[in-house]
Amino acid sequence: MYFLGGDRGQVINAGGPQSLDEVLLREGSILQPRSPAPLGMRGLTMMRLLAAINGLLNVGGGKAPAAHSAYVVAMLRGSYTDDTGESQRFLLVDGLGVGYGGRDHADGIDAVYFVAQENYPVEFLETSYPVRLKSYGIAEDSGGPGRHRGGTGIVREYEILADDANLSIRIDSVRNPPWGVHGGMNGGSGYAVVNPGTPQERKLVPLSDGNRLLKGDILRIVTGGGGGFGHPYDRAAEDVLEDVLGGFVSRESAERDYGVVIAHGKVDAEATQRRRANRPAAKTFHRMEYVDVVS
């Protein structure tokens, strides 16, 4: 990680990692459990490990990216009535993108699904499964504020057309959102809710199975973002304005977190200068608050 992150000219598959001679793991740890310990959620373990390594590099004086969210997997299974009146079974596994951490030279990557970079089009889902996508877009304010903003997560809203379905959902970094670094603030957390804004609204446990859904239910999944890199007050005001106009950052967050006042679609330069004169103090990491050590 240090080798690849420290030299931007390196290509990941160019053989650099082959220079590693040995990897030592502690037996009985989450990375090398003792049999017959159950194994699962390898994706979450891998994503947490990568963030931990990046954190160590930053403590050691490096400039690794801020922490990232772990991609979300939703598995919907059940039955529906086809055009002939016959009952059919289905299994929908949807991988949802999240935000990656801000970098020392650029913002974090928005709405990305790790290695495969998958982004199933709305039409693919609607023609293949008994669901209708009501909305699909960027989750505003999910990217951690910073000189380089954390990448944003997404909002994906499904209308259930199946007669009966069960949902398995996997959302990580909810209680402990991805940390920001070098003055950057933490990214947002994800969540899943059924029938939002109605008397039947219910929030789902982020890591859960057996969530029953019926025809006509609305399932909204919001994924988390990455942490910010560098103090938010050091971000160019025009970049903050662009994020606000693009739906990545709210006006409230622009003023509260970035110290940028926006009025009538433009930066209020005088008000922004006054607000940024009171620069909040920062420490190495941020997770709900500024700290020097993340545990």
Rank of each mutant, 00 (worst) to 15 (best):
A192P: 07
G183H: 02
N211S: 02
Y113F: 05
L133K: 04
D110N: 15
E159Q: 13
G108I: 12
A165Q: 03
E201F: 00
I169L: 12
G228S: 06
G226N: 12
L214I: 13
L125Q: 10
G150W: 05
G151P: 07
F124C: 07
L133C: 10
F124R: 12
R149A: 06
G150D: 06
H148S: 07
G183S: 12
K203L: 09
A139F: 05
P199G: 13
V194R: 14
P121A: 09
E140D: 03
L214N: 15
E159R: 15
G137Y: 01
G183A: 11
P130Q: 14
R147T: 09
Y129I: 04
E157S: 15
G224F: 04
Y136R: 12
L167W: 05
N119F: 14
A192Y: 00
E157H: 00
F114S: 10
D110P: 13
H182D: 09
A111M: 14
V112P: 00
G190E: 03
R175Y: 07
R202S: 12
I154F: 03
N211T: 07
S208G: 14
L167H: 06
G151T: 10
Y113K: 01
G225K: 01
V131T: 04
Y158F: 14
L161C: 14
L204M: 13
G225H: 01
